[in-house]
Design a protein around this nucleic acid. Structure first.
Lengths: 189, 189
DNA sequence: CCTGAAGTAGACAGGTCGGTCTATTTTTAA
DNA sequence: TTAAAAATAGACCGACCTGTCTACTTCAGG
């Protein structure tokens, strides 16, 4: 798999669990079994390792969510599947995403609040990609661009809220509650 | 106001802007103009200063939000006012809360992911207090405890989602969009 | 077989970390 | 006025931080 990827995997795991500034380079090296010089051959600084970790998490998470949603018919069912997917994530049933410690991108922005910082920008880009994924499916329901955008936005907010609630308050059913609300929004009764 | 409060104010400001692990004790001391021994007379460790900062933020934020909501009739109007209030917060029109860097409690949980850690617990308690505030007003709308709880939960998720979107993506209108969705939920058309 | 790239271990540098300690000054209250 | 309490500056501790450097090993391709 290559040392570079070993470093990224280990760094991501530690950063996600403990936060970025709480983890030193030496700890990443020790747990990955890679030598220090090797790290600095692949990355010019800790910050650039952080960027690589964020980028990797973006890929991991997006591909996982997209494939979960693709397992259902586009539109309403795929959007509902999103909530089931994050429900599995909250309850540690998705090994690829590691044990649940909230959203890595939200957590990371808490440590890099400057919106111009490359790390913050990458987190914003991730959220933007997710939103576009939702919007794509919302367009299967509403022909109007505006209506689709509004629906995607509502589902996005509910999902982000559920992530926060699950992590901060330890509410492991947050995704299901969000799903119930979302379901009422798509086809009201 | 006393050195103890100076320390808490300065620590909170720095922690909120940069994250907790990124800020050293020495920086808090320098910016507050307090001597090191004085800090350790009032707090037994950095962690206990962190706890005090979280507690202070809890008080600041809750009192601010509650008073904003109390400025409107209980129930629907107060709940709508909540979104206007956080909209002002996002757009830096609430000096008491400092410049907007997302939710301090969410950010802090990203650095203290262990749910048993006292700091994490305090953050959870804050969110719980906010939820109860919403529920109180939701009960003015629905007589049923269950209905009120479901409404409060929905508004809570929308609000948390808006905070995240505003911070990570820099969407300064996130609160207004959340309000529009919430408004449709309370009195559907 | 040889060469060069890649990886290893570990010392090292300069700085910061949280926290303790001493010695001195300022403030407060009896 | 005076004695106790609180705050000060700043040295100091051992540990850890990011990052550099050297010297040695591993290993693949020509």
């Amino acid at each position: 798999m290559g040392r570079r990827q070993d470093l990224i995997d280990t760094a991501l795991r530690l950063f996600y669990e403990h936060g970025i500034h709480a983890i030193g380079i030496n700890q990443v090296l020790q747990e990955s079994g890679v030598a220090k010089q090797t790290l600095y051959n692949h990355f010019e600084s800790k910050d650039s390792l952080v960027e690589a970790a964020v980028e990797h998490r973006d890929k991991l998470f997006f591909q996982w969510l997209e494939s979960r949603m693709n397992s259902r018919p586009a539109g309403r069912e795929a959007l509902m599947e999103m909530f089931d997917a994050v429900h599995d994530w909250f309850n540690n049933r998705v090994p690829t995403l590691h044990r649940f410690y909230g959203c890595f991108f939200i957590n990371t922005c808490g440590e890099y609040s400057d919106p111009e910082h490359p790390v913050h920008k990458r987190c914003a880009a991730h959220k933007s990609r997710i939103f576009e994924l939702l919007k794509r499916h919302a367009l299967e329901i509403y022909s109007s661009e505006t209506d689709a955008e509004e629906l995607a936005n509502a589902l996005f907010l509910l999902k982000e809220g559920a992530i926060v609630k699950a992590h901060v308050e330890g509410d492991l059913d947050a995704a299901l509650k969000a799903k119930a609300i979302a379901s009422r929004m798509i086809s009201p009764h």
